[in-house]
């Protein structure tokens, strides 16, 4: 042993370097190959079709290259629909935050057991179809619906309130569908906030409300941002609920896509709409991420 170790040729600094390097890169290749099935799947069912749609969006009905599918979007109906889609998504997200944050906070402060039980009520909406829920809201909110009937019987109002077939009804229905998507990630992130931080804030002299605003709220922002992004993006694709509860007046981009698919003979027409939505959504999420520095302190316990 000693002899081998002392051998001048072998003690050379580069000894085995190539073989070790090869071993290392082989290990990395093996690891990469483990993610391969997932990567292939994502490529096949996500990247490839989106790329294909993107490609198609530059062709007209008879296969000629054209920008017509995009220039058409300058028509007032598309502009209006585009704006109203983001308005609805923004409004629904805002209401979800206002309603969902306190619920998530309450759940996060309860014992795991109680929170688990109450969580059933949060996810309950998942168990019925969106269509059924939407019709249920119609029954509740329409002119002759339960809410208006009660209010009239109670003498609060004399003529029915316009609760549905408008923006209000759309927002109510969509919030009902989207609330769990906000609460679940928010709750998870709030659970992860150790109660010691609130104690530390109190010890520093913060009143409970100061501790909440200055410590808990900022620490829950990553979870809130995740929920907000999820709700906002899902809202952009809404179709059934706004169609029914909006009384036809609330135009959503997804409806326009569906219309274009059936009305235009070329896939490119609808593809272009999809591409624009995708790009704008991407930009908004990026800005959102930069604005709220979503990942600035994630993983900190």
């Amino acid at each position: 042993m000693t002899m081998v170790l002392n051998h001048p040729g072998i003690a050379d600094a580069d000894h085995n370097a190539d073989a070790l390097k090869r071993q290392g890169s082989r290990e990395r290749r093996v690891l990469a190959s483990l993610t391969l099935p997932g990567a292939i799947l994502i490529f096949l069912v996500l990247i490839l079709p989106i790329g294909w749609l993107f490609w198609l969006s530059f062709f007209g009905p008879s296969g000629e290259p054209t920008l017509e599918n995009y220039t058409r979007m300058l028509k007032p109906i598309y502009v209006r629909t585009f704006i109203s889609t983001f308005e609805v998504a923004g409004l629904v997200t805002l209401v979800c935050v206002l309603l969902g944050y306190p619920v998530a906070y309450l759940l996060s402060q309860l014992s795991e057991r109680t929170a688990g039980l109450l969580m059933i009520f949060v996810v309950l909406p998942f168990w019925t179809s969106v269509l059924v829920r939407t019709y249920a809201w119609l029954v509740l909110l329409q002119r002759t619906g339960l809410v208006n009937t009660w209010l009239i019987d109670a003498g609060v109002i004399s003529t029915p309130l316009p609760l549905v077939h408008n923006m209000l009804g759309t927002v109510i229905g969509m919030v009902h569908v989207m609330l769990p998507f906000l609460i679940l990630p928010l709750y998870a992130s709030m659970r992860a906030i150790d109660s010691v931080y609130m104690r530390a804030a109190a010890n520093c002299g913060a009143t409970p409300s100061q501790a909440f605003r200055q410590v808990f709220l900022p620490m829950s922002l990553p979870g809130l941002a995740a929920g907000v992004a999820l709700v906002f993006v899902l809202c952009l694709g809404f179709f059934v609920t706004p169609a029914l509860l909006g009384g036809g007046r609330v135009a959503m981009w997804a409806m326009q896509i569906a219309n274009n698919i059936s009305v235009y003979g070329n896939w490119g027409a609808a593809s272009a709409l999809g591409v624009v939505l995708l790009v704008v959504t991407g930009i908004i999420l990026y800005v959102f991420k930069r604005l709220f520095r979503v990942d600035s302190f994630e993983g900190v316990r």
Binding site: Y135, L138, V139, Q142, R143, T144, A243, L244, G247, G248
Partner: peptide, 19 residues
């Protein structure tokens, strides 16, 4: 026009409920 209906079922409900 208080409602622009989207589906047949909806149109029936509107009339049935007196909406």
């Amino acid at each position: 026009v208080s409602v622009w209906w989207t589906s047949g079922a909806q149109s029936a409900q509107l009339l049935k409920d007196g909406e």
